[in-house]
Design a protein around this nucleic acid. Structure first.
Length: 659
DNA sequence: GTGTGTGCCGTTTTT
DNA sequence: CGGCACACAC
């Protein structure tokens, strides 16, 4: 019974009848239980589950909560609309326009860069930002600003960029037009477009988890919803997404935004021991307080004091911690190693392996950004969305002798032959003599080109007449044609991928990558390494096949991966996480490593646009993941990089005598 | 103009 | 590992 296990504070919140509710839930105060109980309460009151919307920060959090509701209300739980802001938006948008293509940020950056490169930034006093910087800032802008143009917003933020205002706005306009033309959507577009949807469903209640990390765009999305009541849960001390536009004012101003808002406070901490909690509180009290908050420790057993570990070098830190973990009686799945920057992960992972300890790593960039894995998704995307130039170019560039420009020429040629449709261009092309736009300034040369092309008769596809097409490029195009013809009947993702893995394209790509990775200093290829690499690549393909198991439809699989690939974790055992990824989780035993000035707090960021307070909140989140045992550690030197470190200021704030 | 190979650089956090 | 600059080949 979800409701009967609650304490009075939680119960009050879970059974509220007010329209606007904010639940301030400090670390470990049973936030998830309260949300689950709230949903149970609504269902008990006879609310139609379809009219409950649960918005979370990760898909995993949504699944976990729904899973817990399921134990009590098995059928109804599945009907609740639950997911991240992005996943929900995508679901709604797809209903009205099935042709939309969700693209990963990296692909869109490629497009952004190509638009950027065509602009001439000449004759100015300052240097414009690099394309990648602008791309990131544009994302931040989309998440936080709705009145100014991007150029204006940028000029306000960085006055020296003022002179580029017009050129940047013009560039953005072109970038947006291209995205529109091809139907590409970014993560931000999901929310922007879903916010504008008319005739949205009406909800009885909307629940928002991790409310402190809401940004202006998400707030706007919430405003666009129709509902009877709102149930927001958060803790301002755990707001750690400022870089993504998270606006702490939103939670701070809740009572002004929503008249007659009711604020509940959950103050009983069930997670951590008194030592851990008081350490966390000591540090966070250095931040300006929005309003007083005191957590009451509910764990009664004799606590173990948090321990500071000091090491001479980075590598001894990793090695010694691995040894400590090896000898720890805590079950490995209840141990987590947390770090500020992903760059800490590799060292510790290697050290654990050396001790024979298996680990689980999240923030799956590692797997899904592998080139062979990316290639599979590019190929899937081409087949599912024939208008996807970006993926087409990515794939075609694997063919020997084809680079960016020729790939684009071929794509345009196929589009011309297909009267705007790539699939038609491949399968049933117009029999054009020269599908390629002639840049020729010399008409005679162009004529000559045509004559040469006419010599190769009986081409299946006019595009194969491209003057620079290599045999391998030809194979790619013919193979793609075959895939289009044969794959259309397959919707099962496992069959779909198996089919792709047998294709000539995937074979060529695998061989190319395996060779690249087996190349020795002298340029020769180590054949043993080559075979091993091929094996590794095939292993990754098998892993991908395994991932398809939970999905019935290839479209769904593709979308789920783009939306949630970073949540998929690999392996079993000790968890290796960034502090950001650890949000909402808890472990018996926690190691927070690499606690050095510059690294944690990350001073580069704190001085730029983040703040030291945000870094401090990150530290607070990190230590409050621990239930019973907490280790904090730092190293004095990095031997490889010849750097010396000073211990993190947070250690001093926590009461340790350091430096 | 276009593609390929080599050497050197740095590396924030997420949907 | 990926991005970038550079030299070299067609």
């Amino acid at each position: 019974m979800p409701l009967s296990n609650l304490n009075p504070e939680q119960y009050q919140a879970a059974t509220t009848t007010h329209p606007y509710n904010l639940i301030i839930a400090g670390a470990g105060t049973g936030k998830t239980s309260t949300i689950v109980a709230r949903i149970a309460y609504l269902l008990q009151q006879g609310v139609d589950p379809k009219k409950i919307l649960l918005l979370t920060f990760t898909n995993k959090a949504a699944q976990e909560m729904i899973g817990r509701v399921e134990k009590r209300f098995s059928l109804k739980a599945k009907e609740i609309e639950a997911g991240t802001f992005h996943a929900i938006s995508y679901r709604w948008l797809k209903e009205s326009n099935p042709k939309l293509v969700l693209k990963p940020p990296k692909d869109l950056l490629q497009l952004f860069e190509s638009v950027y490169q065509e602009r001439k930034f000449l004759g100015f006093n300052n240097k414009p930002y690099a394309a990648s910087t602008l791309f990131e800032l544009y994302s931040l802008y989309q998440n936080s600003e709705f009145n100014l143009s991007f150029g204006e917003w940028l000029a306000k933020r960085s006055p020296e960029q003022e002179e580029f205002k017009e050129i940047i706005d013009d560039m953005i306009q072109e970038y947006e037009e291209i995205k529109e033309e091809y139907g590409f959507l970014s993560f931000n577009d999901l929310l922007l477009k879903a916010t504008q949807l008319k005739d949205k469903k009406e909800f009885v209640e909307v629940l928002v988890d991790e409310y402190q990390d809401t940004n202006n765009l998400q707030a706007k999305f919430l405003e666009s919803l129709k509902f009877n009541s709102l149930f927001c849960v958060g803790d301002y001390d755990q707001s750690i997404y400022a870089f993504n536009g998270a606006n702490i004012e939103i939670i701070a101003n809740f009572k002004y935004t929503y008249p007659n808002a009711k604020i509940f406070n959950l103050s009983k901490n069930y997670r951590s021991t008194s030592y851990i909690l008081s350490l966390a509180n000591k540090v966070i009290s250095n931040n300006k307080r929005l309003y007083p908050k005191k957590l009451e420790v509910m764990r009664k057993e004799k606590p173990i004091p948090p321990k500071l570990l000091v090491f001479d070098t980075l590598s001894t830190q990793y090695e010694e911690i691995a040894k400590l973990i090896k000898s720890s009686p805590t079950p490995k799945s209840q141990i987590a190693i947390l770090f500020r920057n992903n760059s800490s992960a590799e060292g510790i992972e290697v050290a654990l392996k050396k001790q024979g300890i298996s680990c689980k790593r999240r923030g799956g960039n590692s797997f899904f950004t592998l080139r062979e894995v990316k290639a599979v998704f590019d190929l899937v995307s081409i087949l599912l969305h024939p208008q996807d130039v970006i993926s087409f170019l990515n794939i075609l560039e694997y063919a020997q002798g084809i680079g960016k420009n020729r790939a684009k020429e071929i794509f345009d040629g196929l589009i011309t032959c297909g009267e705007g449709d790539l699939k038609k261009g491949l399968i049933d092309p117009l029999p054009l003599e020269n599908p390629f736009k002639k840049k020729a300034r010399n008409p005679q040369l162009a004529l000559f080109d045509d004559l040469v092309q006419l010599k190769s008769k009986k081409a299946i596809n006019p595009v194969l007449l491209h003057p620079h097409l290599t045999p391998e490029g030809e194979i790619f195009i013919l193979e793609l044609r075959r895939l289009f013809l044969e794959v259309s009947s397959i919707s099962n993702p496992q069959k779909f991928l198996k089919f792709l893995f047998d294709s000539k394209i995937i074979e060529t790509i695998s061989i190319k990558l395996a060779k690249q990775r087996a190349r020795l200093k002298d340029g020769l290829i180590d054949s043993i390494k080559f075979q091993q690499n091929l094996g590794k690549i095939e292993g990754r393909f098998r892993l991908l096949l395994n991932l398809t198991k939970d999905y019935k439809d290839i479209h769904r699989f593709y979308n789920a991966i783009v939306l949630g690939s970073s949540e998929i974790s690999q392996g079993e055992g000790v968890e290796l996480l960034t502090v950001h990824a650890s949000k909402g989780l808890e472990f018996e035993e926690v190691y927070v490593i690499d606690l050095m000035e510059e690294r944690f707090p990350n001073l580069k960021l704190a001085s730029r646009d983040g703040s030291l307070e945000e870094e401090r909140r990150l530290f607070y989140v990190a230590v409050t993941r621990a239930k019973k045992i907490l280790y904090l550690s730092y190293a004095k030197r990095d031997v490889a990089k010849k750097k010396t470190f000073t211990p993190s200021r947070f250690l001093k704030e926590a009461g340790f005598k350091v430096g």
